[in-house]
Design a protein around this nucleic acid. Structure first.
Lengths: 84, 84
DNA sequence: AAAGTATTTAGACATTTGTCTATATATATA
DNA sequence: TATATATATAGACAAATGTCTAAATACTTT
């Protein structure tokens, strides 16, 4: 998950999906990167559980899965507790 | 910052520093990794602003700087807002 | 059934990353 | 001052990462 968030392109994809669900092609259109590369990024995001994909005809819609981020939020917040 | 958090060793270092400030050597002792490698990890954490180092005699004490994490918390939380 | 569109898979390649050993720098102590 | 200790820097190297082009798969339309 940290790994999935480590790439600027992937973080931008998440920000796009914040607005609304998009197909792989619509996402790829937003970047100056080849479609196979975007496909690869989407695969990594999916493996990390950060996005979910649903096939609809010949399109594949991607959407955010924010529940997974709770874990990360908790981790970061736990670091902010005061020292002994 | 995402980059700094992407490595398991660096995340563990942050968790150690959560308990109390430690010298570079004390940190290195917790890992099966050479001291120069740990020194490199500490440098990356420092560059990311996640830790602060203070020289005390021949020792260098490292401590957490949690303020930087607020930015990241905000980013993650912003993704969790509902869709249009 | 054939051609077109959407997406993924496969394989290659350059860059980045984490690790190491060897060496350098700075401080402390005998 | 010489030696020991703490830490960092330099340079090498294998593994991981992000990108590409070419080809494959799946669906749609004519």
């Amino acid at each position: 998950m940290f790994k999935a968030l480590n790439d600027p392109t992937r973080r931008e994809i998440l920000e796009l999906l914040k607005e609304k669900d998009l197909t792989a092609g619509e996402i790829a259109d937003q970047f100056n990167i080849s479609k196979p590369s975007i496909s690869h990024h989407l695969d990594l995001l999916r493996q990390a559980g950060l996005v979910v994909s649903v096939k609809e005809g010949q399109f594949i819609y991607y959407s955010l899965n924010t529940t997974v981020m709770d874990e990360m939020l908790k981790w970061i917040i736990s670091l902010q507790s005061p020292k002994k």
